[in-house]
Design a protein around this nucleic acid. Structure first.
Length: 277
DNA sequence: AGCATTGTTCATCA
DNA sequence: ATGATGAACAATGC
């Protein structure tokens, strides 16, 4: 499940492997992966070079040399791989960019939920509204304590739901939401506005360090995530809450339980993470 | 075979 | 107008 650390891992791989390569051919076995006119997409990227790979939240931005930028969202299981040009597409390969150097960039997606859209460079925000609405990146510099205080004070939604809202903070998904709440000893259903200043300080610190640690470990591989090199992440070995339902809490030994919060599976420790009412 | 899975968007309601 | 909530959606595996 690519959240920020996984998407950043993919970004670094793409940066290393395809910047400077020219797109000489495009195959589209699954045209629905393209939002908008898929024919325009093909003509728009053909003969351009990959110039710069960046990321905002969970979105990848593949900037080309011709004033176009591909905005790519991996959703649940989207994945890129670089292959020799004669490699046969896989069962779930949705787009193949043939490159001038006898390689090909594959986009594979078993769930077929991921999407790509071609935008004009510099107008990505206008053309992809959800990009424009993203909250700050979860970093020391961008996610300030005063911002945290402001947004949390305004919402009565469960803190878990709030953390998943990309318009508040960009990049957190189900795995890291469960992790940082466990680390912060906060019950996932606590209304955002009920968190104390101290809790917000702790939560902020945990968000920032957890995202950084997971990125350093090349992300978490739960079902299928792998980077451009086909390597899985290493952070699944570090998880303290997500997926540990029925196991004992690493802090107090109580049995971890799983509930639904805002329709999302949520694992936490009922002893350490006490509900405030 | 129905349920779980996820992030985003949209409709609805207070 | 605003915020909150729930459902829908994409498709697959178990």
């Amino acid at each position: 499940m690519p959240e920020l650390p996984e998407v950043e891992t993919v970004r670094r791989g793409l940066e290393k492997l395809i910047v400077g390569s020219k797109i000489t051919d495009v195959q589209l076995p699954y045209p629905k992966v393209i939002t908008g006119d898929s024919q325009q997409f093909v003509t728009g990227v053909l003969n351009a070079e990959f110039e710069k790979i960046s990321r905002r939240g969970k979105y990848l931005l593949l900037q080309l040399s011709n004033q176009h930028t591909i905005v790519s969202h991996l959703r649940m299981e989207g994945q890129y791989s670089v292959e020799p040009s004669d490699t046969e597409p896989y069962k779930h390969t949705e787009i193949i960019f043939g490159l001038s150097d006898n390689r090909a960039l594959f986009y594979n997606d078993t769930r077929r939920f991921g999407r790509m859209i071609l935008t004009t460079t510099g107008f990505e925000m206008t053309e992809v509204p959800s990009l424009a609405k993203l909250g700050p990146e979860p970093t020391e510099e961008q996610l300030t304590l005063s911002y945290m205080k402001t947004i949390f004070a305004k919402s009565k939604r469960p803190v878990k739901t709030f953390l998943l809202d990309q318009t508040q903070i960009a990049g957190i998904g189900n795995i890291y939401a469960d992790e940082v709440l466990w680390q912060s000893k906060i019950h996932p259903k606590t209304p955002a506005s009920m968190l104390s200043d101290v809790e917000l300080i702790v939560l902020r610190e945990n968000i920032i360090t957890e995202i950084k640690r997971a990125t350093d470990h090349h992300g978490t591989t739960v079902h299928s995530f792998s980077n451009v090199f086909g390597e899985v992440g290493k952070f699944q070995n570090e998880l303290e809450a997500y997926g540990r339902v029925g196991e004992s809490c690493l802090r107090c030994g109580a049995t971890m339980i799983k509930i639904k919060v805002g329709q999302r599976g949520t694992t936490f420790c009922p002893v350490c993470q006490v509900e405030k009412k």
